[in-house]
Simulated assay, not measured.
Amino acid sequence: MRYLPILMLLAGFWLALPARAAIDVYEFDSPEQEDVFRELVRELRCPKCQNQDISDSNAELAKDLRDKTHEMLLAGSSKREVIDYMVARYGNFILYKPPLMASTLILWLGPVLVILLGLGVVLVRTRRSRRGRSEALSAEEQKRLAELLNKDKEN
């Protein structure tokens, strides 16, 4: 009985091990390096998670990317050099805001072109249906329509 409290304490520690959260701690030479690191991990997208930046992602790949970013900054790389390295390795997909290039032009202009094309189709179909209605009336129907319109104007 006297070992029961110790056993319960050990069991509690053992059960709590899976709940332990890993927190990455990165040391920097200056506050400016830390600011650049924070900006970079918010600008770079996790290739595995796709809609999370590498600072929010729990994927192993995101942790590796954070570690590589930290390592490059400590080695003296600039923000642009880190971004260029990541783009060379993972493509423009890793950037939340891909640059405007020929290969990404469809991403930027695609939605606008689809909307304009849809409006064009609606306008053409509307005009055709209006023309088709007036031409579809026979001579007798057009005469009757004119009479009804004239009667309406007189009243």
Score class of each variant (00 low, 15 high):
15 L>D: 08
30 S>G: 04
91 G>C: 07
141 E>D: 09
133 R>S: 01
109 L>G: 09
77 S>E: 09
100 L>P: 00
72 M>E: 02
24 D>S: 09
53 D>F: 06
59 A>S: 13
45 R>M: 08
41 V>S: 03
88 A>N: 15
94 I>L: 05
34 E>S: 08
22 A>E: 15
53 D>Q: 03
53 D>H: 11
139 A>L: 12
115 I>V: 15
99 P>Q: 09
47 P>H: 02
36 V>H: 01
25 V>H: 11
40 L>K: 02
155 N>I: 15
97 K>E: 13
109 L>Q: 12
115 I>S: 07
54 I>H: 02
53 D>K: 02
62 A>R: 04
150 N>R: 15
39 E>N: 03
78 S>H: 11
139 A>N: 04
13 F>A: 07
92 N>C: 05
70 H>R: 03
20 R>F: 15
146 A>K: 12
80 R>L: 14
50 Q>E: 10
103 S>L: 05
87 V>F: 06
127 R>N: 04
37 F>G: 06
149 L>E: 13
69 T>C: 05
70 H>A: 08
103 S>T: 13
123 L>M: 09
20 R>N: 10
15 L>W: 08
71 E>L: 14
12 G>K: 01
36 V>P: 02
123 L>R: 08
6 I>L: 13
95 L>S: 05
42 R>Q: 03
18 P>G: 06
76 G>N: 06
46 C>G: 05
126 T>K: 01
70 H>G: 04
59 A>Q: 09
84 D>L: 15
89 R>P: 13
5 P>E: 05
88 A>M: 12
6 I>E: 10
144 R>D: 07
69 T>G: 06
104 T>Y: 04
129 S>R: 03
71 E>S: 15
3 Y>G: 02
152 D>G: 06
144 R>V: 07
133 R>H: 00
39 E>Q: 03
142 Q>R: 15
53 D>V: 02
79 K>I: 04
17 L>V: 12
49 C>Y: 00
14 W>M: 14
86 M>G: 06
138 S>G: 04
112 V>N: 08
34 E>Y: 04
75 A>P: 04
114 V>L: 13
135 E>S: 00
152 D>C: 07
152 D>I: 07
133 R>N: 00
141 E>A: 12
5 P>H: 06
9 L>M: 11
129 S>G: 00
2 R>N: 05
16 A>T: 11
8 M>Q: 13
15 L>I: 12
113 L>Q: 07
41 V>L: 02
62 A>D: 07
106 I>C: 03
78 S>M: 11
27 E>T: 11
118 G>P: 07
122 V>A: 10
49 C>E: 15
16 A>Y: 10
52 Q>S: 10
84 D>T: 12
47 P>V: 03
8 M>W: 11
93 F>R: 11
84 D>G: 07
91 G>R: 08
35 D>C: 00
150 N>Y: 13
21 A>E: 15
23 I>K: 14
129 S>L: 00
91 G>Y: 08
141 E>K: 08
79 K>Q: 13
147 E>H: 11
20 R>H: 13
27 E>K: 10
51 N>P: 00
52 Q>Y: 08
10 L>V: 12
73 L>V: 05
87 V>G: 04
14 W>C: 13
145 L>T: 07
51 N>A: 10
40 L>A: 03
1 M>T: 12
88 A>C: 11
8 M>H: 11
136 A>N: 02
22 A>W: 13
122 V>Q: 05
